[in-house]
């Protein structure tokens, strides 16, 4: 079933030198799956995530033939209706939890507030729900964490709390923008495992935005590879290493590997034709 349907999405920023197209006609659908979007900085992958939630600030412009959440067009919604979508039906986890949590509120208060915004509930019920949410991201000493402030948490802990908070309203879609790139590898795996478990068990759709090809290959079902604002290739994540587009191949080859020592790494030769060629659709 299709949760989200994006067709011909453009994001543009007017600049002194003319209009800059950050995203150029991206199309894809999202079912109950883990969809990865990979690309380098400036490829438009983060802009795509933000555009879906209409979080692009003016003077940036978002245009699309359609961005439909379960058949309802998000572009036609008023800002008020959009606020009900953000967080409640589509949640977003950012790279650094430090900037997403309020530094002067305890974690417990923030979780409880998030719950009460989504559900009619008294404080007690909300507290229990918050504790459950923390338990679902493998935080066992929830009571202690609830009393703590964000700066007292490590990066991995903070990101788990963020995920717990984003999942409280029971959204259908989670957009995760580089959720683990600020974390150490061991913690990275834990956070991904938790996210994976939640998404699968709740039947959610996940858009996983990352620059890390290996991570996406491991973790996702389907991958869109973005270059210069376009999707240049779509493939199954477990077949990412058999990708055919020269850009994807170039990215894969430029990674140093422990198992294949090389004197020099192969360098990506950018072909202007890549950004000119029409984009690939990720719609099913």
């Amino acid at each position: 079933m299709t949760l989200l349907d994006v067709e011909n999405l453009w994001v543009q920023f007017p600049t002194r030198q003319g209009v800059f197209d950050a995203v150029r006609g991206v199309s894809f659908t999202l079912g109950k799956e883990r969809l990865g979007i990979v690309g380098e900085s400036g490829s438009g992958k983060s802009m795509t995530g933000r555009a879906i939630l209409r979080l692009i600030r003016p003077p940036g412009i978002v245009r699309a033939d359609r961005i439909a959440l379960e058949g309802v067009d998000l572009l036609g919604m008023t800002e008020k209706e959009m606020r009900a979508v953000r967080g409640q039906r589509i949640s977003m986890v950012m790279q650094d939890p430090k900037f997403s949590l309020n530094p002067v509120m305890t974690i417990g208060d923030q979780l409880i507030e998030a719950y009460r915004l989504a559900n009619k509930s008294d404080r007690k019920g909300a507290k229990q729900a918050a504790l459950d949410a923390l338990a679902s991201v493998s935080i066992r000493d929830g009571e202690r964490v609830m009393r703590a402030y964000p700066h007292e948490m490590s990066g991995g802990m903070g990101q788990r709390i963020m995920i717990a908070m984003m999942l409280i309203p029971g959204p259908q879609i989670l957009i995760a923008d580089e959720p683990t790139s600020a974390l150490d590898v061991s913690v990275q795996r834990q956070v991904l495992a938790i996210m994976d478990d939640l998404v699968t068990s709740r039947g959610m759709g996940l858009i996983f935005i990352s620059h890390d090809l290996n991570l996406v290959a491991d973790f996702c079902d389907r991958v869109l590879i973005m270059y210069a604002g376009r999707v240049v290739e779509v493939c199954r994540a477990d077949r990412l290493h058999e990708a055919t587009h020269p850009y994807t191949r170039g990215l894969l080859n430029s990674l140093p590997r422990l198992d294949e020592p090389r004197e020099r790494l192969s360098v990506l030769k950018r072909d202007p034709a890549w950004s000119e060629a029409p984009g690939v659709s990720g719609r099913i």
Binding site: E40, H211, G250, L251, S254, E263, L265
Partner: peptide, 14 residues
């Protein structure tokens, strides 16, 4: 840095 740029810098360092 991005991975493709990383490759360039690592080669440069070599």
């Amino acid at each position: 840095l991005d991975v493709s740029v990383q490759a360039e810098i690592l080669n440069l360092l070599t």
